[in-house]
Amino acid sequence: MRRAGPSAGPTPYLLILPAFLVYGAFLLFPLARSVHLSLFDWDGLTLATFVGFDNYIDIATDERLRAAFGHALVLVFFFAILPVCIGLALAAVLTRARVRGLPLFRTIVFLPQVIAMVVVAIAWRQIYAPDGVLNTALRAVGLDALTRAWLGDYTFSLPAVGLIGTWVSTGLVTVLLMAGMARIPAELFESARLDGAGAVREFFSIIVPAVRPEATVALTLTVVASLKTFDLIYVTTGGGPGSSTTVPSYEVYRRAFELGEVGSAAAVGVTLTAVIFALSVVINRRAERGA
């Protein structure tokens, strides 16, 4: 196969060309254009003015933009860190004692991953509504004082949106970690138990080190997903109340298509991409060094 002989037909370059044309025109080129646009002040209609790195300086100084990136980190906790903690515990418990019904369980917990985020958002809006399921349940047990318009509350709207992310991610993480734990040889547990190790020691000295690769993949997937969250915010809160749930991806949309601050929108998009790349590299490097 190494020598492309005369009968080889199209060269590898010809095979790649069609894919590369579409990919280049609709992904690579716009990506470069984003970087270029981010150096201008442009309203989308009139002439653009070159402003250098002003749009990036804005991200560090503009209160709303700083808040947006801060919220993204809060969502990382709810979409990634919390599900990995829950998933580790859940998968460990279920791996220790093989019970029946695991395939059905896997089908169920993975389900939120395949439902369109808009649908998820609408379902949870009804749960969080002032007369929704959550408040009804709270009133039923006499906790009327806790009821509120969850998505319209300055303090609670961000965690409320975050918990939707926890609901979406936990199944994916659990399924991944269970696959990793199934690889651990049973003798390892038996010898640990002969040494008198309890469930807790078993968890930290056998299970956690063994599923490091799966945990890395789970973290990468969920961290990236949390930073890209747009539809969930768009449908549940629109960034509000005030700016209390706005995130970078929502600011890209708002600035470019509602406020006419195209250069600033591009700068936010480019910065978000840089953050996504940086976090994935950090997560994967750390996993390698620790292994």
Binding site: F26, L27, P30, L31, R33, S34, H36, L37, V224, L227, K228, F230, P248, S249, V252, Y253, A256, F257, V262, A265, A266, V268, G269, V270, L272, T273, I276, F277, S280
Partner: peptide
């Protein structure tokens, strides 16, 4: 890895 947010503005 590139999110749609990074390309959507110039694309439009």
């Amino acid at each position: 890895m590139v999110p749609a947010e990074a390309i959507i503005v110039p694309l439009f």
